[in-house]
Computed example of a mutant assay.
Amino acid sequence: MEQLNTPQGQFQLSRFPIRPKDSLRAWDAADEYLLNYLNDENIALKGNILIINDTFGALSTALATHKPTTLSDSYLAEQGIKQNLQHNHLAPDSVHFINSLQTPNTTLDLVLIKIPKSHAMLEEQLHRIRPFINAKTTIIAGAMTKMVHTNTLKLFERLIGPTKTSLAVKKARLIFSTVTDINLPENPYPLSLNLSPEKFTQQEYTMSNHANVFSREGMDIGSRFFLETLVKSQPVSDEALSMVDLGCGNGIVGLIVAERFPNAQLHFVDESYMAVDSARINFQHAFPNRSAQFSTMDCLGGLEENSVDMIMNNPPFHQQNVVGDFIAQQMFIESKKVLKQGGTLWVVGNRHLGYQGALKRLMGNCTVIASNKKFVVLKAIKR
């Protein structure tokens, strides 16, 4: 835990989840720039304040006394903010949380935006807040300079109004947008995508993909390779198995598994609210007479130990802009806990990530089921 010094006060902040020997801070220079600017320019911190994409809670914690609302697509971000409020002895209800599928309930006076990695996500968020802002609303966005592109500014101009940027400070930049009457284009999200029958299925699926869903415009090659391998390796079965699509995205892996296991109970899990909702929509469209569970949570923290027969996992190798295998390692550890004896964990990953060694150390076994130049599909059994 490190201390963030701002004009609003000093705050002890940590990233969520807390990991041993984590040397990364829970804020960046753009957070500092935003908070300093609010103070230096005497921006009114009253009325209805909305903070968007506050990854670990630097903005929400520093402004908690002003009762902001925080909008995020990340369950982890929400938990991180709550954790940092607690660290700093701030009331848990000092920040109101809404997820990316919800909207504000009143006109906004101040909107602070951390620019997300996904351009589509930013576009959807600007559409979402547009009905709740007016010419009196102050809108300030912040990001590291590498995240601010010409397309970013054009997006603000197209959906909000005239836009300008600040000078860079510590490789961070602010964006200022003035709300004007414009001919607002239609929100294109969620996208609707038709998946034609492929090697792994004879069905055609219509996929609904929210803006923050990975590979929302088409199936990624890793998932395609994973599904082709699963279909070759797993015969159709009438067993009533308990299965989890971990890090489900739009749920395509779970859909194909559900097709091959008609009596299985599927559970779709992701930390993205948009991903889980996309999976829900897609499963209900594909199997209208079948039930499944859909959970937004941190890995498998909400599942009972020794309760699952099979887990399918395509782990992310980054959290926001930080690359590493820490999320995959957490997913593997929690998978071992929730699997029954004899239960299987199926994983697809880039060859260079070394998941095979990690699984062998954790589970005592790991088999390479398939591989190509870029990916491996691994299977580990809980003994």
Rank of each mutant, 00 (worst) to 15 (best):
Q3T: 15
L4Y: 04
L4D: 08
N5W: 03
N5M: 10
P7Y: 05
Q8G: 07
S14G: 15
P17D: 11
L24Q: 15
L24V: 10
L24F: 14
R25W: 03
A26W: 14
W27P: 07
D28T: 05
A29G: 06
A29Q: 13
A30V: 07
L34F: 05
L35E: 10
D40G: 02
E41N: 14
L45S: 05
I51G: 04
S60Y: 06
T61V: 15
A62N: 12
A62L: 12
A64E: 09
K67T: 10
A77Y: 03
E78A: 04
G80V: 08
I81A: 08
I81D: 08
L85H: 09
H87V: 08
H87C: 05
H89F: 13
L90R: 05
H96R: 14
L101W: 06
T107E: 11
T107P: 05
D109F: 01
D109I: 03
I113T: 11
I115Q: 01
P116H: 02
K117Q: 11
R128K: 14
R130D: 07
P131I: 07
P131G: 07
F132G: 07
N134H: 11
I139A: 09
K146I: 06
V148Q: 03
V148K: 04
V148W: 01
L153V: 11
L155V: 02
G161F: 04
P162E: 10
T163V: 12
T163N: 04
S166H: 10
L167V: 10
A168W: 04
K170S: 14
S177A: 14
D181Q: 13
I182N: 15
I182P: 07
N183D: 14
P185D: 10
P188R: 09
P188C: 10
P190M: 08
P190K: 08
E198M: 11
S208N: 13
N209D: 11
N212I: 05
R216I: 08
M219S: 09
M219T: 11
M219R: 08
M219W: 01
S223I: 01
L227F: 01
K232V: 02
K232Y: 01
Q234A: 05
P235M: 03
L241A: 05
G247C: 07
G249V: 02
I252S: 00
L255A: 09
I256S: 05
V257R: 06
V257M: 13
N263C: 07
H267N: 13
D270N: 02
S272Q: 03
Y273H: 12
Y273N: 05
D277F: 00
Q284G: 01
A286S: 15
P288D: 08
S291M: 11
Q293D: 14
T296I: 09
C299P: 00
L300C: 03
L300G: 02
L303K: 05
L303P: 04
E305I: 06
V308T: 10
I311Q: 07
Q319R: 14
V323W: 05
V323G: 02
G324H: 09
D325N: 15
F326W: 12
F326V: 13
A328N: 02
I333D: 12
K337C: 08
V338Q: 04
L339N: 03
W346K: 00
V348K: 00
Y355F: 06
A358R: 13
A358S: 14
K360F: 08
K360M: 13
L362H: 11
M363W: 15
G364F: 01
N372H: 00
K374L: 03
V376Q: 13
